[in-house]
């Protein structure tokens, strides 16, 4: 396949940035999207040009490092798929593909397609943990957890923190990420003591980072590569309202 790529190039956070057009020839449909960019980068290096910077790590869809907006959709149009697991067979020969970084004030561009997602780390630091005394693991059966709760908590815990929810949200809100992190703890017995203070601290940190407000558009959950359920946002709202009304 021969493709035309329009890629956002930005040399550092102070650069203004611009879209640059590249041609990539002889792309195999079996390549992943990132492998296709690797091919482009190898050529750019051989030609003495600056390769396109993009984040990646595991390349098997579980680390949350990769992510770019492909033709206006975070991680591309393939559902439940990270950019590294998106394969070129979903594109056609001769396609023009627009590739942009996540766009959010809270995610400043570091270079090209790499954004700084430290804002997510600070939201976790604000309350995304359970303060338990360390020591040997307790007997698993000493605290029973209903199966339905365990499943829902696990669904929320599959969030890899890639930031696609923020990129897709028309409001630039980080509600789905924050809600997933709040939900996977608030459904389990271990998360109960700090349940309300956690919701309050994490929501306040999310707002302080400059993310937008949630208007329940559902764009986040539609692009989420892990399919984090929309209901998590209702759980976050419920915990936050309970904390705020005290």
């Amino acid at each position: 396949m021969n493709l035309t790529l329009k890629i956002w190039r930005q040399n550092g956070s102070s650069d203004k940035g611009r879209m640059v057009t590249y041609r990539v020839d002889d792309v195999s449909p079996d390549m992943s999207f990132l492998e296709m960019l690797d091919v482009l980068n190898e050529r750019l290096i051989l030609e003495g040009d600056d390769p396109v910077a993009f984040d990646h790590d595991c390349r098997e869809g579980i680390c949350g490092m990769c992510g770019m907006v492909i033709n206006g959709v975070a991680h591309g149009e393939q559902k439940l798929t990270t950019t590294c697991q998106l394969h070129m067979r979903h594109f056609k020969d001769g396609d023009t593909i627009t590739i942009e970084p996540w766009r959010a004030a809270a995610f400043p561009v570091v270079k090209d397609l790499v954004v700084d997602r430290s804002a997510f780390d600070r939201i976790i630091q604000a309350g995304g943990f359970v303060s338990v005394p360390t020591g040997s693991a307790p007997e698993a059966h000493s605290v029973p957890v209903p199966k339905a709760d365990a499943d829902a908590a696990f669904d929320a815990a599959t969030c890899i923190g890639c930031g696609a929810c923020v990129a897709a949200c028309p409001n630039g809100s980080a509600s789905l990420f924050t809600a997933a992190k709040i939900t996977h703890l608030s459904l389990l017995p271990q998360g109960q003591p700090e349940r309300e203070s956690r919701a309050r601290a994490m929501v306040e940190q999310m707002d302080a980072e400059g993310f937008g407000g949630c208007t329940n558009t559902g764009e986040c959950t539609a692009v989420c590569p892990k399919g984090i359920p929309f209901d998590t946002i209702a759980r976050m709202n419920a915990d936050y309202l309970k904390a705020a009304s005290k």
Partner: peptide, 11 residues
């Protein structure tokens, strides 16, 4: 929302 996304998407 406008403040949260100062640079718009090209696509």
């Amino acid at each position: 929302a406008a403040k949260a996304r100062p640079v718009k998407y090209a696509a």
